[in-house]
Simulated assay, not measured.
Amino acid sequence: MNGDDTGSALDGAVVAVAGAAGPAGRATLLRLAEAGATVVAADADVTRLTEAVDAARYAHGGATVTGDTVDLLDREATRAWAEKAEKDFGRIDGLVHLVGGWRGSASFPETDLADWDLLEKLLIRTVQHTSLAFHDGLLRSDRGRYVLISAAGAGQPTAGNAAYAASKAAAEAWTLALGDSFRKAGGDEGPGTAATILVIKALVHDAMRAERPNAKFAGFTDAKDLAEAIAGVWDRPAPEVNGTRLWLTPQP
């Protein structure tokens, strides 16, 4: 599916992308713009954000892709970003949460709780702030979607990944609660808006392959494939994807 396809579910949609400056963010901006969406990107790194936004604009001439430097750890700043997006473009049809981060240890006893302090902010607090800020706007949409990227390790934590896995599990639980709110708002007709979790083992992109040409990256999801899966969430009815985990890696 591309931006020229008649009936593209994303054609004319307004989608916000949090954590847009990384490899997954860049691929997602490109894919959403290709599908005909207006893309409202945010990241804390202004230089990388500008590069990502410019790349999406140049790849798809005429696409509307904007960038805002937003501190997603600031609830009021996040709310202001959501309100501005809806005011500027008249609607908000999606929030894609790509804020990431990883910390681990050699063993469980060596876990540094400073890692938890960091990951709680990156992986949980940003989900809380974006979901609360965009909740009402997404409900006003006829195709609202909140998309969280999670990791298989959330359900099968390893000894050295306690802080990371626990953070991801908490973010999943929060997103499922958001989905329950959408379900209840939909009443007897079912939800018109959906909260969906895409589960990967880990992410791989071209730069990683160039750095490690002999690595197999078994079970990893390519950033472009992740972007395709994100766009695909809009192709499916809200009741089908609301409150669900969609696995992009073999489910354990």
Score class of each variant (00 low, 15 high):
81 W>I: 01
210 A>D: 12
29 L>R: 12
26 R>Q: 15
225 D>C: 06
198 L>M: 02
190 G>T: 08
95 L>G: 05
250 P>I: 06
110 E>N: 13
61 G>W: 02
73 L>P: 00
141 S>D: 06
92 I>R: 04
207 A>G: 01
138 L>A: 14
15 V>P: 08
87 K>N: 11
141 S>E: 04
188 D>Y: 03
216 K>A: 14
134 F>D: 02
36 G>K: 04
159 A>I: 08
177 A>V: 07
29 L>I: 11
148 L>N: 13
217 F>L: 06
204 V>D: 08
45 D>A: 15
155 G>N: 11
191 P>H: 02
236 R>L: 13
61 G>C: 03
55 A>M: 05
240 E>K: 14
56 A>W: 06
60 H>Q: 02
80 A>Y: 01
118 L>V: 15
105 S>C: 08
247 W>I: 04
3 G>Y: 08
144 G>Y: 05
68 D>E: 15
12 G>L: 03
6 T>N: 14
165 A>I: 09
31 R>Q: 15
172 E>H: 05
246 L>Q: 13
71 D>I: 01
158 T>E: 15
48 R>A: 14
2 N>G: 15
44 A>N: 02
93 D>M: 13
100 G>A: 13
90 G>Q: 03
63 A>K: 09
47 T>R: 14
105 S>R: 06
146 Y>T: 01
212 R>H: 13
132 L>V: 12
123 L>Y: 07
221 T>F: 06
105 S>E: 12
207 A>W: 00
229 A>E: 04
160 G>T: 09
75 R>D: 10
216 K>C: 01
162 A>D: 09
246 L>V: 15
31 R>S: 11
21 A>W: 03
153 G>R: 10
192 G>K: 13
96 V>D: 05
146 Y>L: 06
137 G>Y: 02
228 E>C: 00
35 A>G: 13
243 G>M: 10
230 I>Y: 05
192 G>P: 00
47 T>F: 03
122 L>N: 00
165 A>N: 12
213 P>W: 09
36 G>N: 07
244 T>K: 14
105 S>Y: 06
229 A>I: 06
34 E>W: 04
87 K>I: 01
144 G>L: 07
48 R>V: 00
227 A>L: 07
82 A>T: 03
233 V>S: 03
142 D>V: 05
42 A>G: 10
131 S>N: 06
252 P>F: 05
252 P>I: 03
209 R>F: 06
191 P>G: 03
69 T>G: 07
221 T>I: 10
40 V>D: 01
86 E>V: 08
54 D>G: 12
32 L>M: 10
239 P>E: 13
44 A>Q: 11
184 K>R: 15
12 G>T: 07
155 G>C: 07
79 R>L: 04
177 A>Q: 11
168 K>V: 09
108 F>Q: 12
76 E>N: 08
68 D>I: 00
130 T>N: 08
45 D>M: 09
159 A>D: 15
82 A>L: 02
202 A>T: 08
144 G>D: 01
97 H>W: 09
21 A>Y: 09
171 A>Y: 01
118 L>W: 11
50 T>A: 15
6 T>L: 15
193 T>A: 14
35 A>F: 02
